[in-house]
Design a protein around this nucleic acid. Structure first.
Length: 810
DNA sequence: AGCACGCCGACT
DNA sequence: GTCGGCGTGCTC
């Protein structure tokens, strides 16, 4: 008997392993590893979706035939996971303390996720005495079984009938992955034949005559869509059917791909010429590609140094070698312009995966990749799992971006997945950034990665002149904390010259909340330990975590003072203040509120690009990827707010943010200027960002990281404990911390338990324990044990999550 | 996850 | 005496 080892769709620790199933005879030629199957699991043998990870011949020792259940059916005719991805899923599950089933589901389009349905089947109607049950079935012998629709008191009745085998429960797995089929047609005869046929028609057969005329004129055409023919020439499906019956044309069904964007690819765009630096970098990458031995490059290049063109050249080289390529970009920079640039170069070979796709579109793009039609994949984080064969090149643009790590389970990091896949394929990895993560830069230092430098800007224009404005000293406009006189003057100068300005309000670690100027009272969210945020448009307070709202108080609820007013600054207020200072300026605002709707980011940016506004003011989202030649001034309104975050990466984040936004100035032939307003003018992160001096920042920050024993010198694992009752959360955290101390190496450090940065969220208490270590042989074992214990805590309602190398500590 | 088994309290 | 509460344990 053939045995299939199956990972079933039950995300728990105890079930996180392959289960053996017999393969029935009729499926023996069908079931192969990587396929989704229906497997009966557990006491009631409810049907579950599962992934076959291996197939073997039974040795008749391990299982008595009694124990072995049979696979009930297949959900695919072809595997959806290839051997590489099966292995990858297993490795990543282990590495990230996640379940294999969750990993597999993450790797595939949503369409492959099973939908479960239950139904009640009436076996012996005559034995049902309860009238309510008869009503439920209403003469049918099978009805859908939805818990919510059936009253509790009926549930026990049904259960008794089920035990007596009068009623049975059937389980159904719905396969969502359906290809769309379309019909196409082709002429079958010669033009002369069609004309002859037409002459033989009765005069009244005008429709047929039109059909023959059309066919005679298109007898040499390739396959065309039947629907197009019907629409363009006003034929009915009957007409087409008749024509087919008469042998005038032939039709067939083909799988249709829901193309996300219809783009007319009129010819390929020519590659741009590389400058010397770019060429050198490219050559090194090219060599690695040709050698086909895994190598990782860190392409460190200032904004505007033309990294993208190096990527595109490298992709072209990979394709030429018969390889495929994956290029990851942060979701926010995955704009139509960017996509167009890649599609323009590589045409229909490009597949794009981003969050804006519908499930159907995503599924179709996935299939184009799976079938090898698309050999270049561009996408955000999850595109790293694209099922390409023969992978030769992986590019991760803006590699320092946080979004490459998923922030809920499974908490994988795309960079790590890339590393594993590159090992598997002996592929080349290119990590690109103007401000690499310290982890990556340190690896380059150690020789694990090869550092490639791009120091010039492509158009040879120098970096913008940058200046720090000390807000403690500066003359402020109207005594206002937001705009210095210098900045306002600079903007005015741009208005006169019809040049544009970009202003960034650093909202990280910042919020505009209400505060009573007399007693210091701040309205807090009733569910979360967070100040509520002022929304001027709706005149309400809103919690950004749980969404609770309340009206703006006009009198302090604590001391009844009328001096309760907004404190801090939101983009709205910044915009309003600026408009007051510069009434003639046209201002565009870009923040969470104005970009909530799909496509609105695009609209805003296009409008700004057309110079329909003088000033673009926004949050950190404007720091990335904008390229507007007419922008000659970039202002950072509050550079230092993100410095105050209780996280060891606060400096790194601040440096990256300022450097990035500064790079938006003067990208064309006009000289750019950057003004950085701050209350911490001496801080090294701000000073060095002003000079765009990544290398010195790296040196300085590494010294501090070493001193404080942080990454990249130490690894960390964060364990979070969440419970509605604070004591429960604390207790779980305490016991875990104590237990850990006795089960890890001596030089491994255990911190906590400590309340998380925000202790209470959505009425639940968050506590955390942090492990920091360098090498610890015992840790793996300890963590496995801990996951086991976590199950017990979870049973008591304490949610526990484990995060390896967390991006936020605090 | 979901289902059964099992051992204690408040009902006919 | 039974019905049902949810703690515990298992699922090829």
């Amino acid at each position: 008997m053939l045995i299939a080892n199956v990972i079933v769709d039950v995300p728990t620790l105890q079930t996180n392993r392959p289960w053996a199933y017999g393969i029935p005879k009729q499926l023996q030629d069908v079931v192969t590893p990587g396929m989704r199957v229906q497997a009966p699991f557990g006491n009631g043998s409810r049907l579950l979706q599962g992934f076959v990870v291996s197939v073997e011949t039974d040795n008749f020792t391990e299982f008595s035939d009694k124990k072995l259940k049979l696979i009930q059916g297949v959900l695919d005719l072809e595997p959806v996971l290839n051997p590489e991805l099966i292995q990858l899923g297993q490795v990543m599950a282990k590495q990230n303390f996640a379940f294999q089933i969750s990993m597999f589901q993450t790797m595939l389009p949503n369409f492959f996720r099973a939908r479960y349905e239950k139904s009640l089947v009436l076996m012996e109607p005559s034995k049902v005495m309860d009238e309510r049950v008869h009503q439920l079935f209403a003469d049918r012998d099978e009805v859908a079984f939805n818990r919510e629709e059936i009253p509790d008191e009926l549930l026990s009745v049904l259960k008794r009938y089920q035990q007596q085998k009068i009623i049975k429960i059937h389980y159904h797995i719905k396969n969502q992955a359906k290809s769309k089929l379309v019909r196409q047609f082709k002429a079958q005869q010669t033009a002369e034949n069609y004309l002859r046929l037409r002459s033989e028609l009765k005069l009244s057969a005008t429709k047929q005559a039109r059909m023959l005329t059309y066919l005679s004129e298109h007898s040499n055409d390739e396959w065309r869509l039947v629907s197009a023919l019907e629409k363009e020439f006003n034929f009915s499906s009957q007409d087409v059917k008749k024509a087919e019956e008469k042998g005038w044309l032939q039709t067939e069904y083909v799988e249709a791909y829901r193309q996300p964007e219809t783009m007319n690819l009129s010819g390929y765009a020519q590659p741009l010429t590389l400058n010397f630096e770019q060429f050198e970098a490219y050559q090194t990458i090219q060599q690695a590609l040709i050698e086909q031995k895994k190598r990782t490059f860190l392409l460190e290049g200032v904004t505007g140094s033309g990294k993208t063109e190096v990527y595109l050249h490298s992709i072209a080289q990979a394709l030429e070698l018969g390889k495929s390529a994956i290029m990851l970009v942060p979701e926010i920079t995955l704009t139509p312009q960017m996509v167009q640039r890649v599609k323009g170069r590589f045409g229909a070979q490009v597949a794009v995966l981003h969050s804006g796709l519908s499930d159907g579109e995503r599924y179709d793009e996935w299939r184009r990749i799976n079938q090898g039609t698309a050999r270049v994949v561009v996408g955000a984080r999850s595109a790293i799992f694209a099922p390409v064969e023969n992978l030769g090149l992986i590019i991760i643009d803006e590699e320092h971006e946080n979004s490459y790590k998923q922030d809920d389970n499974p908490r994988y990091h795309a960079r790590e997945v890339a590393d594993w896949r590159a090992d598997f394929h002996q592929a080349t990895v290119v990590l690109g950034s103007a401000t690499p993560s310290l982890e990556s830069r340190a690896r380059a230092q150690k020789g694990i990665y090869t550092l490639l430098h791009l120091q010039q800007r492509v158009k040879n224009n120098s970096l913008p002149r940058a200046e720090i404005i000390d807000m403690t000293e500066s003359l402020k406009v109207n005594g206002d904390d937001l705009y210095s006189k210098k900045l306002i003057e600079a903007i005015k100068a741009r208005l006169v010259r019809h040049e544009q300005t970009v202003l960034m309000l650093n909202r990280r670690g910042y919020a505009n909340f209400m505060m009573c100027r007399d007693c210091g009272y701040v309205p807090m969210c009733p569910n979360c330990d967070l100040a509520m945020t002022v929304h001027a448009d709706t005149h309400r307070l809103e919690c950004h975590v749980c969404g609770a709202t309340q009206s703006l108080p006009y009198v302090c609820p604590q001391c009844h003072s009328k001096r309760i007013r907004p404190f801090g600054t939101g983009t709205q207020k910044a915009e309003m203040q600026l408009q007051k200072l510069l009434p003639q300026a046209k201002i565009l605002r870009m923040d969470n509120d104005t970009t909530r709707r799909k496509g609105s980011v695009e609209k805003l940016l296009t409008s700004f690009g057309r110079q329909e506004a003088d000033i673009l003011i926004g949050t950190q989202m404007i720091a990335k990827g904008l390229d507007f030649p007419n922008v000659t001034l970039v202002g950072v309104l509050n550079a230092d707010t993100s410095l105050r975050l209780p996280d060891f990466r606060a400096s790194e984040r601040t440096f990256q943010l300022i450097t990035q936004v500064a790079g938006r100035a003067g990208r064309a032939d006009k000289a750019g200027e950057v003004l950085i307003q701050t209350f911490n003018p001496q801080h090294y992160a701000i000073q060095l960002a002003k000079d765009q001096d990544y290398e010195r920042f790296y040196q300085q920050e590494m010294r501090l990281r070493h001193q404080w024993r942080y990454a990249p010198y130490y690894y960390s694992i964060q364990i979070k404990f969440v419970h509605a009752d604070e004591m429960q959360a604390v207790q779980a955290a305490m016991q875990t911390a104590e237990w850990l101390k006795n089960h890890v190496a001596d030089n491994t450090m255990i911190f906590g338990p400590a309340p998380s940065g925000v202790k209470r969220l959505k009425n639940k208490y968050h506590y955390q324990v942090l492990i920091r270590y360098q090498h610890d042989a015992q840790l793996e074992q300890a963590m496995t044990q801990l996951m086991d214990d976590a199950q017990k805590w979870q049973a008591k309602g304490v949610q526990i999550s484990i995060d390896r190398d967390p991006l936020n500590i605090g």
